[in-house]
Computed example of a mutant assay.
Amino acid sequence: MAGNEKVDMVHQNAIHIETIRKEQRHQKLHTEFSINPRMKLHVLPDKPMAAKPAEVIGENYFIEAFHRARQEPTKKYAMPMTESQEIGWVSAPLIPPNRGDKRLNFSRTSTDITKHKESALRAAN
């Protein structure tokens, strides 16, 4: 189409019908709903003078979904979901700690020279 030609009502209606058909082709009808895991649930107590309701048994699915939403990301997912989660994802030490290994533990040691210098510094103060 050239820039000068105007689209008449018939063409506009045809474009509109085609758009609606494309949208309807890709639509899904959702029939299963669940709670939003990011929403905080506040449990409010009953009114003091209200009659006591019968014991309400909650569905296990909602209780499990609530507890799953409150877990740490490392327990919820097998792999990090974002790049920022990759930092610190593996928090377990790569090798088991061994305090007797002198290559990895540099504990404070003192010799005759360091003891003498330490006592001289204490005396100066």
Rank of each mutant, 00 (worst) to 15 (best):
A69G: 12
P45I: 05
R70I: 03
A54L: 08
A54P: 03
Y61T: 14
Y77Q: 01
P37L: 06
H67E: 08
E55I: 08
A50C: 11
D46L: 08
E55Y: 10
V56A: 04
T74L: 03
F33Q: 05
K76V: 02
M79I: 02
P45F: 10
F33P: 00
E72P: 01
E59A: 08
N60K: 14
V56C: 04
V43C: 01
A78F: 05
N60T: 09
P73D: 12
H67T: 05
S34K: 14
K52D: 13
E59S: 12
H67I: 14
K40Y: 04
R38G: 03
M79R: 11
M49D: 14
P73T: 00
R68T: 04
Q71L: 09
A65V: 11
P73M: 08
M79P: 00
M81H: 02
K47I: 12
P37V: 10
A51W: 15
I57A: 06
I63S: 07
E72R: 01
G58H: 13
A54S: 09
R38K: 05
K52M: 13
K75N: 03
R68E: 05
I35L: 14
K75V: 03
L44T: 06
F33G: 00
L44F: 02
F62K: 01
I35V: 12
A51S: 15
L44A: 03
E64S: 04
P37M: 07
V43N: 02
E72L: 07
V43G: 00
E55F: 12
H67Y: 14
Y61K: 13
Y61M: 15
A69Y: 03
P53L: 10
E55W: 11
F66N: 01
K75G: 01
R38P: 01
A69N: 03
S34F: 07
A65M: 15
R68F: 09
H67S: 03
K75F: 03
T31W: 11
I57E: 10
K75Q: 08
A54V: 09
M79C: 00
P73E: 11
V56L: 09
E64P: 00
L41G: 01
K76F: 01
K52R: 15
N36C: 07
I35A: 10
P37H: 04
H67A: 06
E64W: 08
P48N: 09
L41W: 03
M81C: 01
I63L: 11
M79S: 02
E59F: 11
P53W: 14
N60R: 15
P45L: 10
K47N: 10
E72K: 10
E32R: 02
F62N: 05
L41Y: 07
P45C: 06
M39D: 07
K52Y: 15
A78H: 02
M79K: 09
Q71E: 10
T31L: 12
Q71M: 14
